[in-house]
Write a protein that binds this DNA or RNA. Structure first.
Length: 338
DNA sequence: GATGCGTGGTG
DNA sequence: TCACCAAGCAT
């Protein structure tokens, strides 16, 4: 046991949470399907993002049961996820919905191993669903828990390695209580989010202060250095004729597959076209400079893969799933032009 | 074990 | 400005 008084540690957390815990929409339900949706949305995504734009409330209204998501088409699920990023998550969520319908008669499974076996559900998400929906005594380790544990135990090794993960999960297993795992796990994560924060931890008011060994919290947890960002240019065209706009759909093998964007052209094909906008956005380790050219009064340069391009009515634009950088630039351009 | 995957917030 | 980070997972 890593602590002398684990019961006191657990009790401190649960008491703090009962006073300071936020009343998020996904904490007002124990429906495992709704809990799963929230957990998948929150993977590598901050609470404020999911909360502010109403993604969770809208999604569970649109797909209240696994069967509802299982029968939706690709464009519909991508549109419901638009703005959240990591679109693979919603595809896996649909695969999980189909598996629940096909192998569990549409009833969300109760056993941890069955939850863990669903597509897109790893060790963290399985533990989160089991503890939040069913109050089962399962450990969780996310970025918040990793930060709290690495500081409480003054862990000087890297956490983004197999050995580091093993250590964090071992602490999580040993400390999760048998009875109140729902409240305990919620509290541990929320302390990491509200108090034991990345840059400026509020150690003076932290209820785990008496359990905590680190003298230099902001130096923890230790991680390897990130991959260097690569600069990339993207040259796209705004082609509008007779109330229609030309769009490109990403292939199944591509990133953002199934989504629509403005068609790309080689830079040298666009020398005669006026530049309409210039913006930048990040995707994985790339920094993309996106330039949009006006081809409305010029013959449109030939595409290398015209089979992926299609004319759409301008009215259809809001219903077509589109990556955020293109949604934003189109909203701005069309507001200016019309 | 390392890498790819989106987007928005932060100091 | 820009690197880093966030309720991870699959390959």
């Amino acid at each position: 046991m890593p602590l002398q008084q684990p019961a006191s540690f657990q009790k401190s957390l649960i008491q703090w949470f009962s006073k300071e815990g936020e009343d998020y929409p996904w904490r007002q339900t124990t429906d495992p399907w709704h809990i799963l949706i929230s957990e998948v949305m929150l993977q590598q995504t901050q609470v404020a993002t999911v909360l502010n734009k109403g993604f969770f409330v809208r999604f569970i209204a649109q797909f209240p049961t696994p069967a509802d998501l299982a029968r939706a088409d690709e464009q519909t699920i991508l549109s419901a996820w638009e703005g959240l990023g990591y679109y693979r998550r919603v595809r896996n969520l649909q695969k999980a919905a189909k598996a629940i319908c096909d192998y569990h008669e549409g009833i969300f499974p109760k056993q941890y191993e069955q939850i863990r076996a669903l597509p897109g559900i790893g060790r963290y998400t399985a533990g989160a669903v089991a503890s939040f929906a069913y109050n089962q005594s399962q450990p969780i380790v996310d970025a918040n828990v990793a930060r709290v544990f690495s500081r409480v135990f003054d862990y000087q090794e890297r956490v983004d390695t197999t050995a580091g993960q093993k250590q964090l999960w071992s602490w999580a297993e040993q400390l999760v209580p048998a009875k109140n795992a729902r409240a305990y796990n919620s509290a541990l994560m929320e302390l990491g989010q509200q108090v034991c924060t990345n840059k400026t931890p509020k150690c003076e008011t932290c209820i785990l202060k008496k359990f905590c060994s680190t003298k230099d919290p902001t130096s923890l947890p230790k991680k390897g250095s990130a991959k260097k960002t690569v600069l990339v240019d993207e040259h796209c065209i705004l082609a509008i004729q007779d109330g229609k706009i030309l769009l490109h759909q990403e292939k199944a093998s591509a990133r953002r597959s199934g989504m629509w964007k403005l068609p790309e052209r080689a830079h040298h094909q666009l020398e005669a076209c006026p530049l309409l906008s210039k913006s930048t956005y990040g995707i994985t380790h790339h920094r993309v400079t996106l330039r949009i050219y006006d081809t409305r009064n010029i013959s449109i340069p030939n595409s290398e893969n015209p089979e992926q391009e299609k004319w759409h009515q301008l009215e259809e634009l809001p219903t077509l799933p589109m990556p955020s950088p293109f949604r934003k630039v189109l909203d701005t351009l069309l507001a200016d032009l019309f």
